[in-house]
């Protein structure tokens, strides 16, 4: 780890985390520290527990934490993230871009984004925007991910293509400006143009104050968004950590040499 990153206090600390899914151990002693301003990539074979880690951090009720800790900085203090409800985590700046975003029929994308944004504003003690002001704000964020306005009045993700769903996730990230963004295979299923748009969006949202964790299988995403750290998650643990050159090595050699 570089000296500069050592100086900063952590934003997220995962310590010896063990998680079961339907009684089956999936995460088996996972450790990970993330500081503000950092970009992490998590790679690893299918089924190794990458989405499980993201879902646990976001607070999905199906994942049972057996032991270990997940601590998250709130107002300069490390708090037990697992004690917070999913919506409380989001209000404190945790954001998960889902690998498979669900379709929510009947709820318009605009209404969804506004309800979400206003809930977070309220928590942070800022006044909710008027509908007109919110629409204006939304417009600027939509430009960031080059999304057409027609998507606002459709049901959330309903009838969106795979790529459109991923773009919609990044739009939500842009609207909510989280402190910790977990992007679970946001690059999967994107064509070259969509990948460029999504990566540009993420790069524009990156700052000294927030951290980004990208779960990915592909080096091509890392060509657009340069990671500070690359981790390999295999068998429920981080088995290797390196800099961006590790991703190149994985692309060339696969995971076998680590297992």
């Amino acid at each position: 780890m570089s000296a500069t990153s050592m100086e900063k206090p952590a934003l997220l600390e995962v310590v010896d985390l063990h998680v079961n899914v339907q009684g089956k151990p999936v995460l088996k002693g996972l450790n990970l520290t993330i500081r503000p301003g950092e970009v992490h990539a998590i790679m690893g074979p299918n089924g190794s527990g990458k989405s499980t880690l993201s879902k646990v951090i976001a607070g999905h009720p199906d994942y049972e934490v057996v032991s270990g800790q997940v601590r998250y900085e709130v107002n300069f203090q490390m708090r037990d993230l697992l004690e917070l409800e999913p919506d409380e985590r989001a209000k404190e700046g945790v954001f998960l871009a889902f690998q498979y975003p669900v379709e929510v029929p009947g709820v318009s994308n605009r209404n969804f984004l506004r309800t979400s944004y206003n809930a977070i504003c309220k928590h942070q003690g800022t006044e909710a925007l008027s509908d007109a002001a919110f629409d204006q704000y939304l417009k600027s964020k939509m430009a960031l991910v080059e999304m057409d306005e027609k998507f606002l009045d459709r049901g959330v993700n309903v009838g969106f293509s795979g790529g459109e769903k991923k773009r919609n996730e990044i739009l939500q990230m842009a609207v909510l400006s989280p402190r910790l963004a977990l992007l679970d295979e946001t690059d999967s299923g994107l064509d070259i143009d969509a990948l460029r748009i999504v990566s540009n969006g993420v790069n524009r949202l990156k700052s000294r104050h927030n951290a980004i964790v990208m779960v990915t299988h592909y080096q091509r995403l890392l060509d657009h968004i340069t990671p500070d750290f690359v981790h390999v998650l295999a068998g429920g643990k981080i088995v290797e950590t390196g800099d961006k050159s590790l991703a190149l090595k994985l692309e060339e050699k696969g995971y076998d040499w680590l297992l």
Partner: peptide, 11 residues
Amino acid sequence: HLFYLQSRGIS
């Protein structure tokens, strides 16, 4: 659906 909305800060 519930979790998706909650994960966006909605109680």
